[in-house]
């Protein structure tokens, strides 16, 4: 049984890669955690194309949870989800995406690092998308003082 994959979206490539490294370790090597950080040229920014290919890599058949940091990362993730819905009626030649396989892709309303770690831990147990999503969202309640 495949595990839910995780995609981390940030304005910064380094931030997305660093958070992915941490989450991968917490997922004890069982969970695909893919970064989608920075613009296509590697500078600061967000790229829906990088996001799309990260989702494809993270998708092992059990669905993918997206965790975005802020600003345009969130807007890009939401726009991507809107496009996935449209893919159900393949129209614009972007076939082959996860939307085609009807796997579930969902955006977590979660803090970036804590959410990524919580999602990876729960995904490593083989839990479904809903449970991984809930774990990421619960992570906001972790007190630090």
């Amino acid at each position: 049984m495949a595990n839910v994959g995780i995609v981390l979206i940030s304005h910064s490539r380094a931030l997305a890669e660093g958070a992915a490294e941490l989450a991968r370790q917490m997922g004890v090597g069982q969970v695909a955690v893919e970064p989608a950080g920075g613009a296509a040229d590697g500078g600061l920014g967000t790229s829906i194309d990088l996001l799309e290919s990260a989702v494809r890599t993270a998708d092992k058949g059990a669905g993918v949870v997206l965790i975005a940091d802020l600003g345009s990362s969130v807007l890009t993730a939401k726009t991507y989800l809107e496009e996935l819905e449209e893919l159900e009626e393949p129209e614009d030649g972007r076939a082959g995406g996860p939307g085609d396989q009807r796997t579930r892709v969902a955006l977590a309303d979660a803090p970036f690092v804590e959410g990524a770690v919580a999602a990876a831990v729960v995904a490593s147990t083989g839990a479904p998308v809903e449970a991984v999503l809930a774990a990421a969202e619960e992570a906001r309640h972790a007190r630090k003082s």
Partner: peptide, 18 residues
């Protein structure tokens, strides 16, 4: 709109693109 979403790089891409 699709090109704006894909190539703009900041929040204005998804917003104007949408």
């Amino acid at each position: 709109g699709r090109a704006l979403i894909s190539k703009t790089g900041g929040a204005s891409g998804p917003l104007y693109g949408t």
